[in-house]
Design a protein around this nucleic acid. Structure first.
Length: 570
RNA sequence: GCCUCGGUAGCUCAGCGGUUAGAGUUGACCGCUCAUAACGGUUAGGUCGCAGGUUCGAAUCCUGCCCGAGGCACCA
């Protein structure tokens, strides 16, 4: 039994996430967490909402709410959706928690003591009407290069030229529309991660088993241009963690807050404290402090490729730079993007399916299965309704659902709702068991390697093996000549359903719960040897024939949903 | 412009130096009739983006080009 700390990239508080966000971090993290728990390991699986920053302030203002209020509400919304998708977080925290405030300030103090923080004076665009400094992308004006009239302060969307806000002709705030802007001097803290370049480079270079996606992004940031650059870790905002060194004030930094990308990853640590403070655990340091028991913890992070630089460089710089024995990540599993019907999912345009809408249409298992079996591991992947329909109908309804249905209903009609006795196992059963042992081993290997798609494929192959067995054993034919033989076949098949309920649970937990309750399964121990595992339900065990596990998606629904989610979320 | 990843059967993908290039799905055919018109079997289908090169041998390595996606740092 090993100890595994698992975190999923924390979703931004600004609205409901779409399926692309879900499959890029939370869902595969949940798959892995459920699998490891199923194998009997000790797991701490954490996630949270990322709540600070300008977009949150603006979203709150748009909703006519106070930021704190808005975030509290949206946190609840996201927490409910996470439950809806059966994401089995041990705790779903908030980056705005008091624990994270204290810890972020603590890290900043440590980094300062280690000489890793410098103060930099710079000028930024200030809007008097908005009463705030504006991030570059919230300033628009005419592009000096191509004349496009809605160029943003960071880049012109028309000619793609990189811009500085002061370059814009006739700039205005996109928040208020005000043109009363001026450059003002402001002072910020920078994390001197450039001084840690070699250390980080050596660490990344040693990770030859990480996904190429992870290491290639990290190395690009390390080696491109002038190499790893220092990063500003503070902002002139109201909503955030006040800049302090530990519990002491930071002279000259009054009224400023830490930048979200500094405090967000620290929330992984703070979240463990929240977990304890919520009464769900007793000792968070044995997960996070190598001097207090965390040295035997394996820490795995899951994220989309956009989050990789912060997890491979900035956060490790924070951890290492503190000079304290914090647990460093052992493996970073990163994902590409999921596209929607030939284009991108778009939060702003409402294109694609969002978590709340998905659950209104179909139960979580359908989505979990499709998303995980098509996870964007080696390249960007594509969601189409047609593919979704075909995969779900075939894999879940036909291959797995119908197997359960044909076995349980046959048993009910011939032997009643009780595992039948009589008969013995022969060569057909031995061949099946040998095949299943081999497939189970392959499934476990893939799961342990976090090869999500391959795991799904192998699991499906295990389901198929059940149908192949039934076809060759043909209990419906055997029953006419030798009812005992049919009883043996059915007994084995019913036991196979029990095994399915256990090993499929990481992918489709609800359907597996349905099966477990239909068979009154209490011993859900992961199968070790199939021969033993298929003898756990003895003759005489009562069960109830479950409702069909999965329904089919119809052509009409596909047509309806394609039209409904093509854009303009209502 | 620069960088990264990808371009393999109608579709979704695997293979990433070595026997006739694989799987699922789709299509065709056969079988079964326990089951959600489900299941099992057989079979069709590919000049592995294009052009060169290295090699006894390349989908697999190198170069160039074409196409797609993403990044190029203070945007979460």
């Amino acid at each position: 039994m090993a100890r595994h700390l698992i975190t999923s990239a924390i979703p931004y508080i600004n609205g409901v996430k779409h399926l692309g966000n879900l499959v890029g971090s939370q869902l595969p993290a949940d798959l892995y967490a459920r699998y490891l728990r199923g194998r009997g390991h000790e797991v701490l699986f954490l996630c949270a909402t990322d709540e600070h920053g300008t977009p949150a302030e603006l979203a709150a203002a748009k909703a006519g709410q106070d930021v704190a209020e808005y975030c509290a509400e949206m946190h609840e919304v996201q927490a409910r959706l996470a439950e809806g998708f059966r994401l089995s977080f041990d705790h779903f925290g908030r980056s705005s928690s008091p624990q994270n405030h204290a810890l972020t300030q603590h890290f900043a103090g440590r980094l300062y003591d280690e000489g890793l923080i410098t103060e930099v004076s710079e000028t930024q665009m200030y809007s008097k009407a908005d009463g705030r400094f504006l991030p570059d992308r919230y300033i628009e004006g005419t592009c000096p290069n191509c004349g496009f009239d809605s160029a943003r302060g960071d880049q012109c969307d028309n000619c793609t030229k990189q811009l500085d806000p002061v370059d814009l002709i006739d700039p205005h705030s996109t928040i208020s529309g005000s043109k009363d802007l001026e450059m003002r001097e402001t002072k910020h803290l920078y994390l001197r991660q450039s001084t840690m370049k070699d250390q980080l480079d050596g660490w990344i270079s040693a990770k030859s088993d990480w996904p190429v996606l992870t290491t290639s992004i990290a190395k690009k940031w390390l080696h491109d241009g002038d190499g790893l650059q220092d990063r500003g870790i503070t902002r002139d905002l109201d909503w955030g963690i006040p800049v302090k060194r530990g519990s002491e004030d930071w002279p000259g930094m009054e009224g400023k807050v830490f930048y979200v990308w500094f405090d967000a990853p620290i929330e992984y640590v703070a979240c463990a404290q929240e977990w304890v403070d919520a009464g769900k655990g007793s000792d968070w340091e044995r997960w996070w402090r190598t001097d207090k028991g965390a040295d035997d913890v394996t820490y795995t992070q899951f994220m989309g490729k956009d989050n990789v630089p912060f997890h491979t460089l900035s956060f490790p710089a924070t951890i290492l730079g503190s000079g304290e024995p914090w647990k460093l990540v052992d493996y970073i599993k990163s994902f590409n993007y999921l596209n929607y019907e030939g284009g991108q999912f778009s939060t702003s345009r409402g294109r694609g399916v969002f978590m709340d809408q998905a659950l209104e249409i179909l139960p979580a298992d359908y989505w979990r299965w499709w998303l995980l079996s098509h996870a964007p591991e080696s390249s960007d992947a594509e969601f189409t309704w047609e593919n979704f329909q075909v995969s779900v109908n075939k894999d879940l309804a036909d291959v797995l659902g119908n197997f359960v249905s044909r076995v349980t209903k046959f048993c009910r009609s011939k032997f009643g709702e009780t595992v039948p006795e009589g008969g013995t196992y022969g060569p057909t059963e031995e061949a099946l068991i040998a095949d299943l042992n081999q497939k189970l081993a392959a499934y476990q290997t893939h799961m342990e390697a976090m090869d999500v798609r391959k795991s799904a494929q192998e699991l499906r192959a295990i389901w198929v093996a059940g149908n192949e067995y039934l076809q060759s054993a043909a209990p419906w034919a055997a029953f006419k000549e030798d009812p005992d033989r049919a009883a043996a076949i059915v007994r084995l098949s019913l036991n196979l359903i029990r095994v399915y309920a256990i090993i499929s649970a990481p992918f489709i937990p609800d359907a597996c719960d349905t099966l477990k309750s239909a068979f009154g399964i209490e011993d859900a121990a992961w199968p070790d040897d199939m021969s033993d595992a298929l003898a756990v339900l003895p003759a005489g065990t009562e069960f109830t024939v479950p409702e069909n596990l999965f329904r089919k998606i119809t052509e009409d629904e596909v047509a309806d949903w394609s039209a409904r989610f093509s854009g303009q979320r209502n």
